[in-house]
Design a protein around this nucleic acid. Sequence first.
DNA 1: CCAACGATGGTCT
DNA 2: GACCATCGTTGGC
Length: 188
Amino acid sequence: MPLGKKFFNQPTVELAKSLLGKYLCLGNLKGMIVETEAYLYRDDPGCHASRGLTKRNAPMFCPAGRAYVYFIYGMYHCLNIVSGKEGEGEAVLIRALEPVQGIPLMQKRRKTKRIENLCNGPGKLTQAFGITRKHNNLCLLEENFCIRSSRKKPEICTSRRIGLSAGKELELRFFIKGNRFVSKSPYH
DNA sequence: CCAACGATGGTCT
DNA sequence: GACCATCGTTGGC
């Protein structure tokens, strides 16, 4: 069973932590979420919604549980899960997954056999899963595109977020301690 | 190992 | 015209 509305309606930072250890499922592909970042509507200049509604960030202002997919650096996509109250503009960036199911397809798309290099970054996991603009604004409550629960209770580490110029001092990145599929970074 | 850099195009001012 | 929630390659040690 996909996780439902109640799960996504947690406050954004709690949701970002709760997502760790859960599964992202798209068609036959499955990965365990091992790294996330929270983007908040108050006092967070790093958040795409911080300067108000635009064409790009419109999905962020929708009810929690949607996908917000944006195109970055001319070649990559990033997957977020919209969170917070409708109209606020908060989201959780999915930064890394541990591949679980559908690994051959991920290897083909990523052009590498190395499991650790399939989903250990926001641009890599969207490539491995074939996530593009087409998935923008889709609800994550469907059988073929959803979050599924697990029994895991991971130990969570916190750090600054990666790759920002504004809001870089905020400690809003969360990852599973010691997991080898977390993206490479100076804080790992 | 690692730091530096270029690719590449959509979005916003 | 500047910026960008990235990544793979290159060339140093």
